[in-house]
Design a protein around this nucleic acid. Structure first.
Lengths: 349, 349
DNA sequence: CTGAAAGCGCTTACAG
DNA sequence: CTGAAAGCGCTTACAG
């Protein structure tokens, strides 16, 4: 209670490599080798060391390691994704960084044309690797620059990852397939669709999945049931007006993301249509707007925080391998999505 | 150009205290003293050292310092503020942290009742100080616990800061005053107001400022022109319906935040009212929803990113002072807000 | 496969 | 007011 003299003490209490070494009857060097898992250590020794680590509840002092090794700097190139995406992403990235002892440095790149400069700045600031969230992860120019510079990088939430680069994503196709089947299961057969920005790979797959699921269920999707959006609320407004101005209305609208789905609800209300009774609406991403609007949106949840965590872990692995002069194979990680049912598609009884 | 052998090299290139000491003709010790500015150094020496620092473009190696001193850990207690707030906040906090070499650790505290546990967890994770954004910065229980534990902390965006605790904020009263005067200047005299969550101190001041500005301009505000909201979109929907269901409508509505203002626009559109021609609408905070909806919202911009930066700087100062065994006076920092005029209140010609 | 030594760049006592 | 020495905890060559 109120210990006023807290001096640089570490949370763990502070077993060091040296303590572990002594307990295991080996040298500090060997402990270090076990921790880092690169060099060759006999199984027997490794076991002894690991046991000592457990018993002493040893945790590496990331600050000391950084002093020797150089700080691991993870760069994030963010170009106005939604704030929701960014905050969820940062929460995950930061969590992993504090475990790894890596520093996260941010660089904004609003103007897609300035991406070259932004990447250069990130590297000038000492970034050892770069996290590439949407929409940059779908920019050929950015990807090409990163590849040419040979800097470790991880694409996050791109739908069609390059084989040359690590990536963490969900299966957008499966997600949209699941959503479409959900609407079909609720009895909807005449469904409108709002496409997303054609430059974004997830937009392409989500649309394709919708079409495929409809076809498989034996339902034709006429051209007037599909509207082009750009992932913005504003574009959703326009697209929704287009879809709802038809002589006969669809009974449901599937928008490629939540912002546009929120716009559909607004337009529906403007036309005095009840959601979901007159028209069911669903989105994709499960961003905060999904639970902000009323009724709340049925949508596909993307585990952004987990994806960011995973991306940082991958990046750190890559950076370490590179520093050790080892080669590194790009890794692709697929994370699970979840269909979140809310009021906007509730079954009309 | 593809230097494959980048080994733990630092961005700056790497002048050390030792280089500076040599150039200045003093000891490394003295350089350290100058950098940290605590101990006594003669003006002459200090000048010499500072000049050497400049010439060598010396930057302290935060990793090495952390190895000696212990990592500085800044904790952030976030309890579902808007994603927009969180991301803007994190961008600022992270920027300052990477300059200071501090680590940012996050702890979610969604359930206000679990705040005690969340604070304990943050401390168990090694937090040396805590950042307290809204709504926690207005929670007496949380503030009390922090004070009792004697842990350095900074409240961010509270409107009525405790004198015992550092705080960074804007002047919510002045902000709302400015906004009200803006509406008056546009010719509105019959203005509706939607209050925010009464537990939040900014809500109280914003309302008070509105009333004061109206009174000062000689306009009475009848009870039916004021509706109670809770800062959520949903509550804004209800409040807007209440205000717009009056036999005579106000010509403008000032909502205490952007989410509620966005809801006002949705309701207005549902009633086939044009914004701003039939009804002007404005919000507060300048969160992304302000530029997502259409027409875009006139609002008061709060420099969240700068505020976070400032809060981290204050916290680090406090932690350093504490570690050095010095006392520290809580500081209150007032940041400038900006009135952002957009289409939702454009003058009708 | 394993270890003794030296050092990352900084700062904390201890002297003077 | 200033400095020489030792050490934060870890890891990188260098041996064996």
């Amino acid at each position: 209670m109120g210990s006023e003299t807290k001096q640089g003490d570490r949370p763990a209490g502070g077993a060091t490599v040296w303590d572990v070494a002594q307990k295991a009857g080996v040298s500090a060097m060997t402990v270090s080798r076990v921790i880092n898992g690169n060099a060759s250590v006999s199984d027997k020794t490794r076991e002894k060391v690991n046991r000592a680590i457990q018993e002493l509840n040893y945790q590496v002092n990331v600050a000391a390691r950084a002093a020797r090794i150089g700080t691991l700097r993870v760069g994030l190139l963010y170009s106005n994704p939604s704030a929701a995406f960014l905050s969820a992403f940062l929460v995950g990235a930061l969590g992993e960084c504090s475990q790894t002892g890596a520093h996260l440095i941010l660089e904004n790149c609003d103007n897609l044309r300035s991406q070259r400069k932004a990447i250069d700045r990130l590297i000038a600031d000492g970034a050892d690797g770069i996290l590439v969230p949407p929409p940059l992860c779908d920019s050929k120019a950015a990807l090409k620059q990163l590849a040419e510079m040979g800097i470790p990088s991880v694409a996050v939430a791109t739908a069609k990852p390059s084989p040359q680069m690590s990536a963490v994503r969900i299966d957008d196709y499966e997600g949209a397939l699941t959503m479409t089947k959900h609407l079909l299961a609720l009895g909807h057969t005449d469904i409108g669709f709002i496409k997303g920005d054609p430059e974004h790979t997830p937009a392409q797959l989500r649309y394709q999945a919708f079409i495929d699921a409809m076809r498989e269920a034996g339902h034709h999707v006429p051209a007037e049931r599909v509207a082009q959006g750009m992932f913005t609320y504003r574009s959703g407004l326009l697209a929704a007006r287009e879809l709802l101005a038809q002589p006969t209305r669809p009974t449901a609208i599937f928008a490629s993301n939540d912002d546009m789905a929120a716009a559909v609800i607004a337009v529906a209300h403007g036309l005095h249509l009840q959601v979901p009774d007159d028209i069911a609406v669903c989105g994709f991403d499960d961003t905060p707007v999904a639970t902000t609007v009323w009724p709340e949106l049925t949508t596909v949840h993307q585990p952004i925080t987990e994806m960011a965590r995973s991306a940082v872990a991958l990046l750190v692995e890559h950076i370490r391998a590179r520093r050790a002069g080892q080669s590194y194979m790009p890794q692709h990680r697929l994370m699970p999505f979840t269909l979140v049912e809310r009021e906007s598609t509730e079954a009309h009884d």
